[in-house]
Design a protein around this nucleic acid. Structure first.
Lengths: 231, 231
DNA sequence: ATTTAAGACGAACGTTCGTGCTATATACCG
DNA sequence: CGGTATATAGCACGAACGTTCGTCTTAAAT
């Protein structure tokens, strides 16, 4: 996976001095932007929080747009570290597919970014504003969607998921549940939403799994009252 | 339904003169805000577009927050007219439940607001910004969720939907599909997303419907070729 | 015909934004 | 040690923001 290869190269910095503070700036920028948005991420605000001058900070980036793009790239690195890599420790097929969704929900729930999913927030902020920022966000979210879809296809190739399910359709559904949980959590502080999303995803995985695939899913959790005696 | 009662009262205006321009302002405001956001909705921009002075326009509202709140209320009125009322023409039960979702998707697809779903955009803009604006948006979106949930319960009471399905869970799923379609449409211009959301919703309705409920759903559409017609 | 009140206007306020220019401090290299 | 980049700071700018103020026009009420 190209994603894994690039994590090695990203380690060491540019010119040692400036590279380090630049990284420090970007880490703070990601945190602010996830809560206040990429436009609410103000150079003055960022400088104050880091006890720097506006101009000193600004010198690290040629423009505000560059700062936004660099912030997005940093967020992507965090996302890969916090979601993609852990999920890829699970074996290819249904286990990895499930873990991708599970870890994603945990990453929002656990407050990796203080404003929920960084990219969901950025996408809705820039979706009506054409330009490089919007394009990059769209590209990164597509990466995610493609990763989920590929995990679905691999599950089918491994004989763990029925081949009569459309991978694109299922990826759309999983992504929707994640967006829905993120929405409910951010707007209402509803932590139950994550459990709901997990239940919806698991229900679908179970229904479409072959026997060999179903055995790789977590055991059915008993609901209060009654459970999947449905149908 | 209280929603229907309030459509009658909203007809006539306040002081005839001022009420009319105020309404004109708000209609333009809703359109701008749906694309540029409630914060991107600038008083100067609004005044320019309407060939008014900033101060003359501003006098209709005591503050920017008041303008935002009034804009939200106007958007809600549009939403009720364009989505709720048409859906409530369908008979109670599964037909109304399906039509609620179907009309919602059409309302985004058809560009009632040029920036997709007004409330989805506003929610993600203000979900990390406490205050009256955020509270009102959250309240309105809850109204919608409750309306969908009630339609589910009514479908069960009418014996058209199996009672072993959790209404809150199903409402979460339908809402997620709508958010997912809105997301794909705004970020990628993907019109197929609406068809995908409809398919997901219908599939679930069919699976959980009783015989009497299933007969009230639209006929099954044949898919092109095999499921592999996607990209 | 006179008074009153509302609506719209232009100008200006103070603040904050992104962005340049210029000077100083700090670190690295011969 | 001195010299040269590089990093940061200080300062100022033009524009845009929300907001306030005083004035003029216009239509209704007396």
């Amino acid at each position: 996976m190209d994603v894994i290869a690039e994590t090695k190269a990203a380690g060491e910095g540019r010119k040692a001095r400036g590279g380090r503070t630049r990284q420090t700036i970007l880490e703070a920028a990601v945190d602010i932007a996830s809560a206040e948005g990429l436009e609410g991420l103000t150079i003055g605000r960022l400088a104050t929080q880091l006890s720097m001058s506006k101009s000193g900070l600004f010198a690290h980036f040629g423009s505000k747009e560059d700062l936004q793009l660099a912030t997005i790239e940093t967020a992507r690195t965090v996302f890969i570290r916090e979601v993609i890599l852990p999920a890829f420790e699970a074996e290819r097929g249904v286990p990895r597919l499930w873990k991708l969704c599970d870890v994603w929900l945990s990453y929002v729930q656990g407050g990796v970014f203080s404003g929920g999913c960084f990219f969901a927030a950025a996408a809705s902020e820039f979706d009506s504003r054409p330009g490089p920022v919007r394009d990059r966000i769209a590209g990164i979210m597509k990466e995610w969607l493609v990763t989920v879809r590929r995990a679905i296809v691999e599950s089918q190739e491994a004989g763990q998921l029925n081949t009569d399910v459309d991978p694109t359709q299922l990826a759309f559904e999983f992504n929707s549940f994640e967006l829905g949980a993120n929405w409910a959590f951010k707007l209402y502080g509803d932590k139950q939403a994550f459990a709901r999303a997990r239940e919806s995803i698991l229900e679908r995985l179970r229904r479409h799994s072959t026997r060999s695939g179903a055995s790789l899913l977590p055991p059915i959790k008993q609901k209060r009252g009654r459970t999947c005696a449905n149908r």
